[in-house]
Design a protein around this nucleic acid. Structure first.
Lengths: 100, 100
DNA sequence: TTGGAATATCGAGAATTTCCGATATATCTT
DNA sequence: AAGATATATCGGAAATTCTCGATATTCCAA
């Protein structure tokens, strides 16, 4: 729980959008249904399409969010699926209430 | 409530420390008693001493935190006193729980 | 086993942030 | 009015972040 690292991860509009999109994968990434469900989250390509940035940038953003502990990943075949780590948000909310 | 601006403000160790010090002014800035109470918070000079950075940097940090809405200021004579804006933290905590 | 698809990593230019010293402004004291 | 004190603002060097294109890696399919 490196607070500065977490807040840096949250200091970017696109990354905040990604986190928000991942709250409702079915709604925000309907195209993924064609090759997978949502049990493990959403794959990088789908997120890239929606973000409108290059593949490398989105991949970087996702691993940055993961290093901060805000999302977690599952590799299945050639896809990496990312989903929110809700415990981290719950904890962060409490930290802001009590510690910061 | 510009989320990115708030998270940027929180993305710095010194600024997090300042916010934390301001939770307990009496404890963290005992020297201020000699010229003022704590009704309006802590003056820049006291914060600068504790932060160990230059006066200009601390002044910048404080107005940055204020622009983000996390602290508020009161000018009294030649001193500017800063105190936490607790409503902002409460709101931020809720935003993280529900919106982000 | 070769080619293609998905993702990750690398190197770099532009933009932003960090933090400083110097200077400006505001207020108080005398 | 002049000097002293507290704070704010300005200009800039160094570090970091943003975002890209190019390339590497991993895995699947034929």
């Amino acid at each position: 729980m490196d607070q500065v690292e977490i807040f840096k991860a949250l200091s970017n509009k696109t990354r905040l959008q990604i986190l928000n999109w991942l709250k409702e994968p079915e709604l925000n990434f309907p195209d993924q249904k064609q090759h997978a469900g949502f049990e493990h989250g959403v794959c990088v390509g789908q997120i890239q399409l929606k973000a409108g940035l290059t593949q490398s940038t989105v991949s970087e953003y996702l691993s940055l969010l993961q290093r901060a502990g805000l999302i977690k990943s599952t590799r299945i075949g050639q896809w990496t699926y990312y989903q929110r780590n809700e415990e981290a948000f719950e904890l962060l909310s409490q930290v802001i209430q009590k510690e910061i």
